[in-house]
Structures are given as structure tokens and as C-alpha cells.
Design a protein around this nucleic acid. Structure first.
Lengths: 117, 117
DNA sequence: TCCCATGCATCGCCACGCCATATATGACGG
DNA sequence: CCGTCATATATGGCGTGGCGATGCATGGGA
């Protein structure tokens, strides 16, 4: 069974993934963690010590908006994308596509990709 | 004109790119830097303070082999892949493909990729 | 002759993912 | 009823690695 990816792969793309998941609708931290894990077949599993500071950063940057839900005993902090967040998501996604394409082009001749066509 | 990618994108994939370029044949540090720059349309341009320590790390790990060329006035340190380096290249490349695929799958529904088919 | 590209190298800074730790509640089993 | 575990958020210190700054030496072209 494959295990978690090298942590360094997350650098520079974890923000993007979080924004991407939130584009699907509001989530709270813990559920976001689970969404990432299931969406990646368990191979991307950001730790709490990573995720919460990250969410605070995104909030400080105005990319997401937080709202506490204290209606139940379990206090949950729900996050949703702001307009700026949606804009950033699009931009970062295109940056990512461009980056991945360059890398793919560089690797293709030396290491064949899994399923070519 | 697009500028350089976020530095953090390089974390976790710059090693891979260097190995990928070296799979094409031996290179010395400075020429490697240029290869990466041209292969990326100028958008990936690792600094000397990044590249040389990186090469030393790869050498320490036995993934590349160095040989000084002092035949000319310009001293150049040529690097080539070792067997272990070729193996690592393949492994990391597949890791990268898997990672990129997960991210692509996550982004596709929310941000359309440049050229779909 | 002077400047810039070439060519290699090291050092301190900083951002961020990780682990450890803290705290509190709900659920389930014995 | 009580312990244990999943849930839920948060902070602090550590380690890693790309970057800018700096240093130094040579070759080529203006």
C-alpha cells in the first residue's frame, strides 16, 4: 500500500487544495482534513498542526471567511471562500497547471507516464 | 510576461527536475541551471545558492557522481546519474505523476484546465 | 582595460509542514 | 457509570530547503 507523499510536495500546493475543496461548499477544519484524505486515497493527510495555522493564514489574507457554529456541543468553525479566495483559486490553479505541464514535458522523455493515452 | 513560479512549488520537485535533466546526459551546475530555465520558458530558474547545495546533497546521497574538468581555464564540475540516481528518478517521477493526478482531479471540477482534450 | 557572463561555493533568513502537547465534548462499550 | 476513543480546535518548537547576499576567479568582447 502506498503511503503519504513527501511533505515537501505539499509546499506550494496545499493552499490550493484547501481552496479547491472549499469551492465545493463550506467546510470546517476537521471535515476539510477528511475531504483531502479521501480525495487523495489517503495519500494526502495534512496534520492538524499544519491545517489550522494554514486556515488562519488564509483568513488573514481575506481568502476565506470563518463562522463559529456553537449550536451544538461540538464547536465547529466553518470556512467558506470569499470573492478574493475564488479569484486566487483560479489563478493558483492555472499556475499549477502550467507548472505541472512543464514538469511533465521534462519527464516524459525519460520516464514514461502511467497511462499515456 | 509571466514571471517565476512561487518558490514553494519547487520544494519537493526540484530534485526531480535536476535528475530528469541529467538523464539526458552529464551536465555541470551552471549549464544545468540554463537547461532548467530554457526547458521552462524562463519560469523555473533556481538560484546558485539553491542549485549548488542541492547538487551536493544529491551527491552525498549517491544519486549523482561528480567529476572536475580542469582541462580548460574554466573549472567545471560535471555531474552524471548513478544507478541509484536513475532508480530514484523513476520512483520520484511516478510519485509526481500520482500527486499531480490527484490534484488535477481535485481541481478539474472547480477550475477548468487549459486544454481539456 | 574594464566590465560582464561564466562558474563554483557558503551563510543567514524565512516560510511552512511536522510532531508534541493542550483542552473539551460526544459516543460507545463494558 | 466510567473509561477510552473519535471529534474538534489551537499553539509552540524543530527541521528543511529555496532565496538573497556575498565572495572569488577566469574568459571574452567592447
Amino acid at each position: 500500500m502506498d503511503e503519504a507523499f513527501d511533505s515537501d510536495l505539499l509546499r506550494g500546493s496545499l493552499d490550493l487544495m484547501v481552496l479547491g475543496v472549499l469551492a465545493d461548499g463550506p467546510k470546517y477544519g476537521y471535515s476539510l482534513q477528511q475531504s483531502l484524505r479521501t480525495a487523495s486515497y489517503g495519500r494526502i493527510d495534512p496534520k492538524a498542526g499544519t491545517l489550522y495555522p494554514l486556515l488562519h493564514r488564509l483568513e488573514d489574507d481575506g481568502l476565506i471567511r470563518a463562522k463559529w457554529d456553537t449550536s451544538t456541543g461540538r464547536k465547529r468553525k466553518w470556512y467558506e471562500l470569499t470573492a478574493a479566495g475564488k479569484k486566487r483559486l483560479k489563478h493558483q490553479a492555472h499556475e499549477w497547471y502550467a507548472y505541472a505541464d512543464i514538469l511533465r514535458r521534462l519527464l516524459e522523455p525519460v520516464v514514461a507516464p502511467p497511462q499515456p493515452a
